[in-house]
């Protein structure tokens, strides 16, 4: 009993394997048509992948600027140094804040005196007009624009705070742009995934119509819809995998072609920035997306069209 079950299972596996290889052979026999379909899928998949890589590069690039993203919190005049220290201690315990440095009014004055060249004029002042300042560095993980703004709001609502100033507002804008770009990539991915479904679906539909006679004969001799559908599903799967491989190759090729110019630009700015390419995981995901879309597209097409295809004699 068990061995019969096992042999049926292996028979089932074997049939699937035969279909898998048979489908590949089928594509091989029509190299031009298959290549066209695979190319369209590959290009469609490479677009969101390329955009994603662009955004990732932007993020990696801006990661270097995180250290320059600092908040200056000017406390109200008359707030004491010990109060400033206490506030700093409180802020250090908050999540999202990496580092808090206190610059006391006296330190600031000294610095100003040393750096500004107004030292003599400053001597004339009866007392120190500068407030105590807290310099806050947010933690690097809280880099999205929304979080940065929220932190600013929180700081402004603290008692004894006069003014919160972000020294590098443009970094924030850059993050906002990256956020938008990331959303655009997601939307583009969805649209292009639908496109791939349609491409595969349409190719499989034509394939099915071309093989109408064969399908009808198979139905006459007792083939189930699942049996007839199977080779088409594997066709779709191969289209998708082929497209995925092509997409990975295209993205890597573009990355390779841009590597030189990018590092030259980076060199001019005194940076050793290297262009990111697809990580193995990302490449795998692209292949998987291609495979799933190919399978799904052909499944939809096959289910729609095989049902109506009843035999005649």
């Amino acid at each position: 009993m068990q061995s019969r079950l096992a042999s049926r299972f292996f028979g089932y596996l074997l049939r699937h394997l035969q279909n898998l290889l048979g489908a590949l052979g089928g594509l091989w026999r029509q190299p031009l048509a298959s290549l066209m379909t695979v190319s369209v899928i590959g290009i469609a998949l490479s677009m969101p992948a390329g955009l994603h890589l662009m955004v990732e590069n932007g993020r990696a690039l801006s990661g270097g600027w995180e250290s320059t993203l600092e908040w200056s919190v000017y406390l109200q005049p008359g707030v004491s140094e010990s109060r400033a220290e206490a506030l700093a201690e409180e802020l250090r315990r908050r999540p999202g804040i990496d580092q808090v440095t206190v610059i006391t009014a006296d330190q600031a004055l000294d610095e100003f005196r040393a750096g500004s060249g107004f030292s003599e004029a400053l001597e004339l002042l009866a007392n120190n007009p500068l407030p105590n300042v807290l310099v806050i560095q947010p933690s690097a993980s809280d880099e999205s624009a929304g979080q940065t703004t929220r932190l600013a709001d929180e700081l402004e609502r603290l008692g004894d705070v006069d003014l919160v100033q972000l020294d590098t507002a443009w970094v924030q804008r850059f993050h906002a742009i990256l956020d938008t770009a990331r959303r655009a990539v997601t939307l583009a991915s969805i649209v292009l995934a639908l496109g791939v479904l349609l491409i595969v679906g349409n190719t499989i539909r034509l394939d099915i119509l071309n093989r109408r006679q064969e399908i009808e004969v198979a139905k006459l001799v007792g083939a189930s819809d699942a049996f007839i559908r199977r080779p088409f599903l594997y066709h779709g799967l191969w289209y998708g995998i082929g497209g995925g491989i092509l997409a990975v190759a295209l993205v890597q090729l573009i990355g390779f072609l841009l590597k030189e110019p990018v590092s030259r630009v980076a060199g001019l700015y005194g940076s050793d920035y290297r262009l990111l390419s697809l990580a193995p995981g990302e490449a795998g995901l692209l292949l998987l997306a291609g495979a799933v879309l190919g399978w799904l597209g052909s499944w939809i097409a096959a289910s729609r069209h095989l049902r109506d295809m009843d035999p005649e004699f």
């Binding site: 139905k219 001799v221 007792g222 083939a223 049996f227």
Partner: peptide, 14 residues
């Protein structure tokens, strides 16, 4: 239907 047809042999003019 497929299982049913598998038990019937069919021959056709064409």
């Amino acid at each position: 239907i497929p299982a049913y047809r598998q038990r019937i042999g069919m021959a056709f003019q064409d």
